[in-house]
């Protein structure tokens, strides 16, 4: 069922897909952190970041549209910044249809939009080239607490089922002519949500029963863990080194 989940392409085959999850996670997170800490005025850096990303997307065979289309989530938050623009005092202003916009403010807006878009793109690429369970295993091997990984894995397994149930409840109401337009109608949605909650709780008890019957004792047993191969280490080092270089020297 189509949920708008972005891990649709996780099972393709490409050199990027074949990399170890840890390499991809660390590269993506370094990319995001470094991009976010780059001052907006270093336009060249941002251009190079985008270029590196596009090149990786091409290697991965994930459709570009899939990655770019997610960047739209930046728009609502950008509105906040845009609203503030006329009130900033900077040394320079630029006149736009009668309103004085401050140039530092415009840099701020540009920076926010670029960083958010690059962040989204990097993340979508990560998730599109790594099946979620391997992503979680990678995180576990990177020492994220096992308990949290267990929670993430279990939650991931059941979000599809519960989301399906939620959608079905909504469609059933729509089929009976329910088109919410006023806030008080949230009460109907509330009843649907209540329904969903009780079924979810009952399911949790059944799942727990099933786990106990197969010997569950508080932690999910994990598979064997492997060391990073030489090739993976090389790719990771190159990736991070390139990003740091761009961050420090591209202006």
């Amino acid at each position: 069922m189509e949920h708008g989940f972005i891990d649709r392409y996780g099972n393709l085959d490409s050199c990027v897909h074949r990399l170890d999850a840890r390499v991809k996670i660390l590269s993506a997170f370094s990319f995001i952190i470094l991009a976010v800490t780059t001052p907006p005025k270093h336009l060249l850096a941002f251009v190079i970041y985008a270029g590196l990303l596009l090149w990786t997307v091409a290697l991965s065979r994930v459709p570009l549209w899939h990655i770019v289309s997610r960047a739209a989530i930046v728009i609502p938050f950008s509105a906040f910044v845009a609203l503030g623009l006329p009130f900033l005092e900077g040394k320079e202003t630029v006149n736009f249809s009668g309103i004085d916009l401050s140039v530092p403010g415009l840099w701020l807006l540009a920076g926010a939009v670029m960083k958010a878009s690059l962040g989204v793109a990097a993340l979508v690429l990560l998730v599109s080239t790594t099946p979620f369970n391997r992503l979680l295993e990678g995180l576990r091997q990177l020492k994220v607490p096992s308990l949290f990984i267990d929670l993430l894995a279990l939650t991931y397994r059941y979000v599809f089922i519960l989301a399906d149930q939620a959608m079905r409840l909504r469609r059933a109401a729509q089929a009976r002519g329910f088109r919410p337009r006023w806030l008080p109608q949230a009460a109907v949605i509330g009843r649907q949500t209540g329904h969903l909650f009780v079924r979810s709780y009952n399911r949790a008890e059944r799942i727990y029963g099933a786990m106990r019957l197969r010997g569950y004792n508080g932690s999910m047993p994990a598979g064997p863990s492997t060391a990073l191969s030489g090739k993976n280490v090389l790719v990771l080092t190159l990736a991070v080194a390139t990003l740091v270089f761009v961050r420090l020297f591209a202006k």
């Binding site: 267990d150 989301a163 979810s200 399911r203």
Partner: peptide
């Protein structure tokens, strides 16, 4: 706790 909180998280997500 683990299966319950996972399903609760899934519930919050769906809701």
């Amino acid at each position: 706790a683990v299966p319950l909180m996972a399903v609760m998280a899934a519930f919050v997500f769906a809701a």
